[in-house]
Structure formats: C-alpha cells, structure tokens
Computed example of a mutant assay.
Amino acid sequence: MGMFSGNQAQEPMHYGEAFGVWTAYSVAKGQLAAYQVYYNHVGDEELKKLLGEMVENVIKPGIEETEALLKQNSLGLPVAPPERSEANREDIPVGARIMDPEISAVIARDVAEGLVADSMVIGQCVREDIAMMFGQFHMKKAQMGAKLLRLNKKKGWIIQPPLHKVSKNNQTD
C-alpha cells in the first residue's frame, strides 16, 4: 500500500479528504431527517415529487457511498439524527405548517451550498476515486437544482432581486 500506487482504494485518505467525506455524510444525514419533515408539510404535489426525488436520487445514495468510504478507511461515523416518520399534513395546524415556498427556498439553498461543498472536496482531492464520487454528487445536485429552478419559476415562488437596467445613454460599446 503506497501513496500514488495506482490502486485508489489502497491509497490512504489525507485529512482534507477524510474531513470532506465525513462532513458530506453528516450534512446528508441531517438533510434526510429535515426533508422527511418537509415532506410531511408539503401541499404542492410537484414539490412533493421533487422532494422525494431529491431524497431517493441524491441524499440516500450519497449517504450510502460516503458511509461505505468512511468505514473502508476506518473513520468513525458522526452522530446523526434519526429518520422521521410520515405524518398527515392535515394533522399539522395551519399556523405550524412550513409553507411550500419556504420549503422550496431551503432546498434551493441546500443545493447551492452542496454544489460549493462538492467542488471544494473535488479541488482538494488527491484520490481520484473520491474526486469522481463528489463529481457525481455535484452533477446530481446541479440537475435537481435546474428542476427546482423551473418549478420555482412556474409556481411564482422566486423572489427576484432588483434588475440592473442599463439606459441607452449610459451604454458602452
């Protein structure tokens, strides 16, 4: 076993890789619990479907892959919140419900932060297998982000910042 031996699984993880994988696992476990709560609150069927896709296609596979990598490298798993059970939305008082635009905004924020975090891990990797894994995570998040953006536009949930308009008199050629 040696550094740069060509067999990625035989190479040790450096501290940055270990911390990046450990952090990704910890964040994903927290998101899983939170998204299960959001799923109970969501009223919009399209958002509910997207939330389910996010959990099944992005979060759970990420948890499985990072957990396996942590265990293969004898790294301890962080404490994680328990998964949440399903509840009937109608049993949640209206004033206590998390509203669909709020849920959508949180998911959009999580996707944006996840893209940056995945890119950071990719950039610090020496092990190509870990960089590739986070590249796949990045791609899945970007695809979900695009779906979420379309949904937010369609539903009118985006709060657009002020537009910068250049007057014809101030344009530079």
Rank of each mutant, 00 (worst) to 15 (best):
Y25P: 01
V116A: 02
Q143K: 07
M139P: 00
Q10E: 09
I63A: 04
M1W: 09
A96W: 07
S167C: 09
T23S: 13
Y39P: 10
V42F: 14
A9T: 13
D91F: 15
H41A: 12
L77H: 10
G6P: 08
I92F: 12
N170P: 00
G30A: 07
G95W: 02
E90V: 13
G76F: 13
Q31S: 05
E102P: 01
A28C: 13
Q124E: 12
F4Q: 08
V121S: 11
G16H: 03
Q160T: 05
R150C: 15
Q124C: 09
I130M: 01
N170W: 12
V121T: 11
F134D: 15
R109M: 12
V116M: 02
N57I: 01
I159A: 14
I159C: 10
W22Q: 09
M13K: 09
P61C: 13
Q171W: 03
L75T: 00
G156N: 14
P101M: 11
N169F: 10
S167Y: 11
P93N: 00
E11K: 07
M120I: 05
A105Q: 09
R109C: 13
N169Q: 08
P78L: 07
E86M: 15
L47D: 02
F137Q: 14
A34E: 06
S119L: 09
L50R: 04
E17L: 02
L70M: 10
L70R: 02
H138S: 12
V58P: 00
Y25V: 02
M139V: 09
E86Y: 14
M13H: 15
P161L: 09
E56T: 12
D129T: 04
E45S: 03
E53C: 14
K71D: 14
E17D: 04
G114W: 08
P161E: 04
Q72D: 11
H14T: 03
L32A: 02
A18W: 01
T66A: 13
Q124S: 13
F4S: 04
L69S: 10
Q171F: 11
M99K: 12
R97V: 06
I103G: 12
M120G: 05
G95A: 13
I122Q: 10
K49N: 15
I59P: 00
I158F: 11
K49Q: 12
V121A: 15
A18Q: 05
K48P: 04
G76L: 13
E46F: 04
Y15Q: 10
N7T: 14
N88D: 11
I130P: 03
E11S: 11
V166R: 00
R127Y: 11
Q10Y: 05
G43N: 01
K48D: 04
I107G: 11
Q160L: 05
R127H: 10
R89L: 14
D91C: 06
L149P: 08
H138W: 02
Q171L: 08
I159Y: 01
I159G: 04
V37N: 15
M99C: 07
A105H: 00
G6V: 08
K71P: 02
